[in-house]
């Protein structure tokens, strides 16, 4: 029973990896690199938290 369970674990792992790779490929091909890497540090500060004494 446990051996079968371990095969099931391998199968689930394989499916999840395949899904991530597929989604990754889909995302990278349908958005521009510039949009994907447009996150900038510190933008929270600019809007919600002012460092004024």
């Amino acid at each position: 029973m446990w051996i079968d369970f371990s095969y099931l674990c391998w199968a689930v792992s394989a499916v999840l990896v395949a899904w991530m790779l597929f989604d990754w490929y889909k995302t990278d091909t349908s958005y521009s690199e510039e949009a994907l890497t447009s996150s900038r540090e510190g933008e929270i500060e600019a809007t919600s938290e002012k460092h004024k004494v």
Partner: peptide, 11 residues
């Protein structure tokens, strides 16, 4: 198998 499913599932 259990290592793999843990690491991959959580990723």
């Amino acid at each position: 198998a259990f290592l793999a499913v843990t690491i991959i599932g959580l990723a």
